[in-house]
Design a protein around this nucleic acid. Structure first.
Length: 232
DNA sequence: GTCCAGCTAA
DNA sequence: TTAGCGGGAC
């Protein structure tokens, strides 16, 4: 038994990434409202475009869930247009607003008072909140340890040579992290942010820059890529 | 023109 | 399991 799970390959990765890039200071939003709205708006969209949508909401004075609750869906859709899928996303924002307003009088602290698993199930029951968005909200708004899995996370881990014990799906990958890293919201927060950073600077989907990658010596793909094509 | 990518509904 | 939802970057 290793001390607090600190000797496993995931903890090794975390330390390497932290030493290389430093703390990332996530979530990149101005307020808890913008954090949660951003988590919904960033579904299948680049954060750059989400910022344009958040700017529109801010300019329109929409900065609370009761304000979203009171806004017509069509008006909301026009404001969030830059993030794409704007009609669907307006409906999702309205669903979250209705939930927090009708169930908790618009008070997020009251909604987030329950334990991690209870809150996660509750979030997944809201229209438009799937596993990744639920975990974004749990870690970055509620401060609860529920590891965020995204396409970048899975791509980097597969290249390094790690895989879930069970199914190759969201829950399987999340269980891999929960088994290998102590349940600490701050650590989950930082690790996910570092994986995003690593994807941007080194482990991109196409043409990863394996030279000077900080994980090179523990990466199954990187070491092979040096002598062949760097594209997986 | 091609790529990117989470969720719902069927 | 797959189609539909849409924008912006390149």
């Amino acid at each position: 038994m290793n001390k607090g799970g600190n000797a496993g390959p995931l903890s090794e990765m975390f330390q390497r990434l932290l030493d290389t890039y430093g703390p990332q200071g996530w979530w990149p939003a101005e307020s808890r409202f913008e954090m949660i709205a951003g988590a919904i708006l960033t579904q299948a969209a680049a954060w750059r475009n989400v910022e344009l949508a958040l700017d529109n909401l801010r300019s329109a004075g929409i900065n609370t869930w009761p304000a979203v609750d009171a806004l017509p869906t069509g008006t909301l859709a026009e404001l969030v247009r830059p993030s794409g899928y704007y009609n669907a996303k307006a409906r999702k924002l309205k669903a979250f607003a209705a939930h927090v307003c009708e169930g908790y009088g618009g008070d997020l602290d009251r909604m987030f008072a329950s334990d991690t698993e209870t809150l996660r199930r509750e979030l997944l029951g809201i229209y438009g909140i799937g596993p990744e968005t639920a975990d974004d909200i749990l870690v970055y708004a509620a401060g609860k340890p529920s590891f965020v899995i995204d396409a970048y996370t899975i791509r980097i881990l597969k290249r390094v040579g790690l895989a879930p014990v069970e199914r190759d799906n969201y829950d399987g990958w999340q269980r891999l992290f929960h088994a290998g890293i102590p349940a600490d919201a701050q650590v989950y927060n930082e690790f996910h942010a570092l994986l995003d950073r690593h994807h941007k600077v080194a482990c991109a989907k196409n043409a990863p820059r394996c030279h000077d990658c900080c994980l090179m010596d523990i990466c199954a793909t990187g070491t092979a890529a040096v002598v062949s094509s760097p594209v997986l």
